[in-house]
């Protein structure tokens, strides 16, 4: 399997007031086409920073990042915007839906700027919300909102789906429902999917589990058998 994105010797330092914080201290990661990876780590381990750099939301301090062999390390903000626009889908802990747009319109936001998007209704059908197309976020439950966020992320048929604590704000049942959707997207669309979590039981659904600690890759575990999301317990 070829690597869709690779990073090498990645470091990221932030200036927090007068203190310099090293969020990443030399990370090497490569994601292969179509795999589902769980990024595990405690709060402050650097996993969100790594996800932001992989998704083109942030740039590294030193090191190299390449998407399908193209260098992202030296990309300017406009080039990163184009990268996100065409290749990356994001799902956040707090959904980040646009409250003034219905479910369908939230998805359409992305499909109108993407090259070969799905129909918004099709994307919402994929996440099991075919009957909630014209509801505004305020009319949807937390789980439904997160599924709209997933539909919005996958509607552009991204190469890379990055999910930052997608179940963090949800209860167990709803959380599993969302993970099932992510699993289905990965399986049916073949989208390379990264799920960030500090919730260790979720790691069982990943083909690979990369554990970060203190800005470094502490462990990489490859599962020969993945547990279906429906079978997860926490």
């Amino acid at each position: 399997m070829s690597a869709i994105i690779e990073c090498h010797a990645l470091t990221k330092r932030y200036q927090m007031g007068e203190v310099e914080v090293a969020a990443l201290r030399g990370v090497d990661v490569a994601l292969t086409e179509g795999e589902l990876v769980v990024l595990l780590g405690a709060s402050g381990s650097g996993k969100s920073t790594l996800l932001n750099i992989l998704g083109g939301l942030d740039v590294c301090t030193t090191g190299e990042v390449a998407y399908r062999g193209e260098d992202l390390t030296h990309a300017d903000p406009d080039e990163l915007t184009v990268y996100r626009r065409h290749h990356v889908g994001f799902v956040f802990q707090f959904y980040n839906l646009i409250p003034s747009l219905t479910a369908r319109e939230n998805v359409a936001l992305v499909t109108e700027i993407a090259d070969d998007p799905m129909d918004p209704a099709e994307a919402l059908e994929l996440v099991g919300l075919g009957d909630r197309l014209d509801h505004f976020p305020a009319q949807l439950s937390g789980g439904e909102q997160q599924r709209v966020a997933v539909a919005r992320a996958v509607a552009k048929r991204p190469d890379l789906l990055l999910c930052d604590e997608p179940t963090g704000a949800l209860d167990f049942t709803t959380g599993v429902r969302v993970l099932e959707v992510l699993e289905r997207v990965n399986r049916e669309l073949g989208t390379t999917t990264v799920i960030i979590t500090h919730n260790a039981p979720i790691a069982a659904m990943g083909r690979r589990v990369i554990t970060l600690a203190d800005g470094l890759v502490a462990n990489v575990e490859t599962h020969t058998e993945q547990v279906a999301a429906a079978g997860l317990r926490w």
């Binding site: 406009d78 996100r84 626009r85 980040n96 646009i98 700027i113 993407a114 919005r152």
Partner: peptide, 16 residues
Amino acid sequence: SRDLATLRVLGFTRRE
């Protein structure tokens, strides 16, 4: 700002 940042993350340009 949150909505606008979301749009940026989704790939909208600054002009958009």
